[in-house]
Design a protein around this nucleic acid. Structure first.
Lengths: 271, 271
DNA sequence: TTTTACTTTCTCATTTTATGGGATAGGATG
DNA sequence: CATCCTATCCCATAAAATGAGAAAGTAAAA
């Protein structure tokens, strides 16, 4: 059916992923919402983008309007409706970072065989929310519920990658006020710059001797950092080369969790 | 079709608003989202609530899952999915207070024959965003773009009904620092208390001589005040009795705008 | 004003698509 | 190992969705 069905003259854009069958109408309606994400769009263009007739487009759009998923401004077009604001807000309260992240960090721990942590910012510290022990017999002293310094843990630095550099010095000084291993700020700053640029952070035995880790931030729909994950292991298993290799996996996992939280890649936003 | 189609034996709960026809599948799918707003719900209960067979419920739910509108946890049930977080966030950026409020305040102005204003908080002042002149020949000096004091305008006080009383004094003093009509704080505070309790505010010729108004706040999906509307008129048309009567209409209009912004009445939330 | 060029809405015969009964698979729990 | 409940799959039936085209609105042009 679709358009002409005969010779598929449409370029490409019209062919969406098919998905399960037996719910064409529902799927078409849901996909219609995606076509409306950037600004008001009039019916003729909407039906063109959907690859449907005006009739069908109009009928589906009306159903969406009836339930508040779309609104229509005459001579302007369709826009996202108030129901989405409602449901978006409710979904927020249902989504739990720990629960959402679980399957992802479990599989990450499985792949890497190392200990994986999940944490978030709490009062300028990194709060550990969840922990999957690795297969290797490595002692990682952190426990769920602990609050560790931001500037000397991988998790903490990952949570900081969006923090403006003007704040760095203050946070660094706060963390190092109570003694601890003395580190030169200039060195730390240089490393932090590269972490911020790469969107992920390392920890090189700064917080705990012989323990290194790779960490990456988790973001929500508004692109704000709401947590971070890290893979930790003994330095003997974590040479520079492996840390580089791990970066991709950790970043990808963090992105997958972010996506489950409503985040979307900017590059993917505009088709 | 539906159930038995024969004699409508079902009690009531299963019969939803029908809406436009020709999109049953889409409407059922959309309505399914409403059944999932409070916590995980397993398939049998979901199908019961929807008044559908397990087969149909399962198929629709799967389509919603495929597009990310739902997520499923085995042995737990269905929950709202990440797509709703995405779309909710995008909808937020599309929804414009002025445009959304327009039809409502136009109709309010029509009914009351008085001047209606729309405004929001801006730097501890009431910023006037829109204005529908009334039919009566009354001069209202305010103009769109003006920023008026919070504590001496109806609009401003409506924006304040959620502000903790501990802040009141400071705001009051700020507004009255630069001279103006001298008002006793004790009197003002007493009135403000009643406004906060009623969820709407009056202005009794405080800001402008001979001008009285009734105002109410507008809220978004998170129940935060994002704006306010007011009906203003000359004191001769605005005796105490009429202000009382207007309160209902102004409140209802403010609620209608709020609803268009994703707000939902707490009382209506739990069915 | 009337005309023109739209965009939006509605109608209805055709047929594709959704439906739900029931059978199957999967997992807990006792 | 038997039981019980949940989730998934299959398929003939029939109802619901489809789209061509006509009609009704609207805004700008003549």
């Amino acid at each position: 059916m679709r358009q002409k069905s005969s010779n598929e003259k449409l370029p490409a854009a019209s062919e969406k992923r098919a998905g399960p069958q037996g719910s064409q109408t529902l799927l078409r309606g849901l996909d219609m919402l995606d076509q409306v994400v950037d600004g008001p769009i009039p019916l003729p263009e909407l039906s063109a983008r959907m690859g449907l007739t005006r009739s069908t487009t109009h009928r589906l759009a009306n159903a969406l309007i009836d339930r508040g998923f779309l609104v229509f401004f005459p001579r302007e077009g369709y826009q996202l409706g108030p129901k989405l604001l409602q449901l978006g807000f409710l979904a927020q309260s249902q989504v739990d970072l720990i629960q959402t992240a679980r399957p992802h960090i479990e599989s990450l721990a499985m792949r890497t065989e190392d200990t994986v942590h999940l944490g978030r910012l709490d009062d300028e510290r990194a709060l550990y929310l969840d922990k999957i022990p690795g297969r290797r017999r490595v002692e990682i002293s952190s426990r769920v519920g602990d609050r560790q310094p931001l500037t000397s843990t991988g998790l903490g630095k990952a949570l900081m990658v969006d923090t403006p550099p003007s704040e760095w010095r203050r946070l660094f000084d706060t963390d190092h006020a109570s003694g601890g291993v003395p580190i030169d700020y200039a060195v730390w700053e240089e490393r932090m710059k590269s972490y911020a640029a790469a969107g992920r952070a390392f920890d090189l035995e700064e917080n705990e001797d012989q323990i290194r880790c790779v960490a990456a931030p988790i973001r929500d729909a508004s692109n704000r950092i709401v947590g971070a994950i890290s893979v930790s292991s003994a330095a003997q298993y974590m040479d520079d080369q492996r840390m580089d290799a791990l970066s991709d996996d950790v970043l990808a996992t963090a992105r997958a969790i972010s996506t489950d939280l409503g985040w979307q890649d900017e590059k993917a936003t505009r088709k």
